Computed example of a mutant assay.
Amino acid sequence: MLDTSKSSHPSSNVAIIILNWNGFNDTIKCLQSVLNIDYDNFSIIVVDNHSTDNSVNNIISWLKMQYIPQQNKWNNLFVYNEFHIPSQTNSIDLKEKSIIVIKNDKNYGYAGGNNVALRYAVNMGFDYMLILNNDTVVDKEILKKFIAIEKYTKNFGFLGPRIEPYDEDKQVHYGGRLNIWLGRASRNRFSKISKEIEFLPVDHLSGCALFTKKEVIQKLQGFDEEYFLTFEDTDICYRAIKKNYRNYVVVNTWVKHKEFGSTPSTTAIYYSVRNRFLFMRKNGRWFHWFSFLPIYLLGTTKQIFLLLFKGNFTDAKAAFYGLRDAFLNRRGERKK
């Protein structure tokens, strides 16, 4: 078993980053879980991506009224606008547990929203960062188990847990393999792994729970914001591999994840179709396109016709526009 009794860096401080967009109920459930993590030295950064449902006030009210008064160890709450975030490393004491709420002036998507928090965490001097979707709940031992990995491998880029769905009908999964010839990221299913294995290398990890360290974020300069939403997690894991890091899933820790908790299906379909092509533009070699392009066109066309056959015209339209914008090389947030 992984020895979590002593970390190779016993005083390592961790920033846990939670991105919110119009989902304060999920975010509060996530915070309830995170605040119970069994680890002495971590702070929480909640980034709101310009929500329109009064998320910030609801989250702050819950923290002030429900949680902080009952927990003496959580007595530092800071609220910043994205353009007024302090850059001095001594603006917070990393030895004290703090909750920082950052209000973005627009919706920057998954990539841009998390980058705001990652830049802040790096500037403040946090050693590690755990990036969580707001529709997750976590194992209370998750930080101890992640940090223990450094005793076994010093060159990790990203770590992820096994992902347990809220919906019991769905399968548990844990990272996966990337087929660059097809531009396809596949998921490993938990049933295929020996219970004796505690961590193993993978190509990519789910962006719903990514653990990394400061030097990796500095070298990779965070997420690529041209994706806006979806495939940015695959991209950053692949870029880490190209920088000679390795990515691992830590099988004996977990998060529960709703998947696309606050993202409409049409939005997810559009960005999934468009960004798979964008990923290949950025990472594929010329010879990969001989296999990727026909498979991509055939698969997307089949997807559109199946959606039409089922009468799901809105999602079919989203897939079509994703395909169109892929060839038009449109990037970033989808233009209305």
Rank of each mutant, 00 (worst) to 15 (best):
G113A: 09
F158A: 02
A148N: 13
D203Y: 10
V122R: 04
R187E: 06
L200E: 09
R119V: 01
S194W: 00
Y174W: 08
D127I: 08
L159T: 00
L200N: 12
L118V: 11
K192Y: 01
G157E: 01
S186Q: 06
F211Q: 08
G183D: 07
Y152L: 10
R177N: 10
L178M: 15
N155V: 08
S191F: 05
E164P: 08
F190I: 01
T153F: 14
K213V: 09
K140C: 00
V172F: 04
G109D: 04
N115Q: 05
E150K: 07
G109T: 08
E150V: 06
L200C: 03
F146E: 04
L159P: 10
Y110S: 14
G157S: 11
N123W: 03
N115S: 05
F199L: 15
A185S: 10
M129D: 02
A121H: 12
N115C: 03
S191H: 03
Y120W: 11
K151A: 15
K170H: 12
M129L: 03
K154S: 15
F146T: 06
K214L: 12
E150Y: 11
T136P: 10
C208H: 08
A121F: 07
P161Q: 01
R119M: 00
K140E: 04
A185G: 15
N179Y: 11
R184T: 07
N114Q: 02
S194D: 07
P165W: 05
Y152V: 07
D139V: 05
L178D: 08
N123D: 10
R189F: 12
Y120C: 14
L143H: 03
K192V: 00
S186E: 12
K144W: 01
N155R: 09
E150Q: 15
E198V: 15
E196G: 13
N115T: 04
I217V: 15
K213T: 00
G125I: 00
L143T: 08
G176A: 00
E141V: 05
F146G: 02
Y152F: 13
E164R: 00
K195N: 12
H204K: 06
L132N: 12
G160T: 00
N114K: 13
S194H: 07
Q171L: 06
A121K: 03
L130F: 13
E141L: 04
T212L: 12
V138A: 12
I131Q: 11
V172Y: 01
L143A: 04
A111Y: 03
F158N: 03
K170N: 11
G207T: 04
Q171V: 15
L205R: 05
N133S: 14
L130I: 02
